[in-house]
Design a protein around this nucleic acid. Sequence first.
DNA 1: CAAAAATCGTCAGTACAACATCATATCTTG
DNA 2: CAAGATATGATGTTGTACTGACGATTTTTG
Lengths: 191, 191
Amino acid sequence: MAINAKRRPAKPLPASAPIESPMPKSRSQDYSFSGALMSEMPLWARPGYLLRRLHQIHYALFFEECAGFDITPVQYGLLTTLSTNPDLDQNSIARELGIDRTNVADVLNRLSRRGLIERRQGKVDKRTMLARLTPEGKRVTKEMYLSMQRAQERLLEPIPPAERHAFISTLIRLIDGNNHLGRTIFSPKEA
Amino acid sequence: MAINAKRRPAKPLPASAPIESPMPKSRSQDYSFSGALMSEMPLWARPGYLLRRLHQIHYALFFEECAGFDITPVQYGLLTTLSTNPDLDQNSIARELGIDRTNVADVLNRLSRRGLIERRQGKVDKRTMLARLTPEGKRVTKEMYLSMQRAQERLLEPIPPAERHAFISTLIRLIDGNNHLGRTIFSPKEA
DNA sequence: CAAAAATCGTCAGTACAACATCATATCTTG
DNA sequence: CAAGATATGATGTTGTACTGACGATTTTTG
């Protein structure tokens, strides 16, 4: 989900948020996730749809707060990961970030082109390319931290503080619970 | 965020789910969304990151359940929208779905190419192009419904049923609360 | 009513996420 | 050591999501 158009997202990423309320009036709360009725579950009652929207909104907030850095959320995630554990190979990064291996290479290339990371061959395993932050990369990562953080806070602002941890915890449980998905399930051999 | 690789997603979209647990051990729950401490909020405590992951997982589930249809979640959302209110113009669809109007045109083209929707000029306002489902489109929409629904259910399966509505309601509140984002904020004039 | 402003769709261009496939270099193991 | 497994790179595809600009058509307004 890329959003960056030209250079600097002068217009940070509209997220194409609907001006008009996307949420119809009546929320009868009865689209039953346990029963089998659910005669006609509308869009705004589908978690998948809501997740896409909220994810988009996070993008918009991220770009709004981090305007001028020209770094995407995924890129910042990668910077953070390298910041925590330096000299990581691309496969490990992929697992850490939850993105595809080839995609990691793309992101690394973009970051490398801008001098934020550098790569070199691993010594123990010469097949691997270990990535690490450059001094510039460290500087940017640090400099962006508060902006990124503000985006996270603004995202959760609409719900009372007491609910925020619960929400995050639910997200984590849902991710953990579905984590068996992915390449592990349909191994590249079959299919 | 496309996922469809070849024709039929034989491998539905790995979501590149990490094999190794992406969630570190200690979740001290203290990355403070109200205070200002948060010395070093790790990836897995950032709602933005978690939303991306969960959104990805939904994609994987959707493709797994709807394999063979070769329809993406966004495309199905559009089909649903047209199914509820036929003869909608592209701007309305954009608002309804929460995507950009140029993107709506893209999606409509793909659906049109496959004979699932048809468009014609509006009579009252000749600038508009009203889209509607073809009979084939209606058939597919109906046929996919249960599969789509299963994906939604599987997504929420890891949390107890009692919490599911609360989760959805929180998502809705977060979306509603941030809905002021978008083109309306940074008008195209400035910047 | 005619000129100006707003709106609708389109097109071209960019970015990016998530794949597939093939080639190559490098382990690892029987 | 040879065979298989693994890591990465290079290249290409599809789909989502923008930006910016343009023509055609309203709508608004002077």
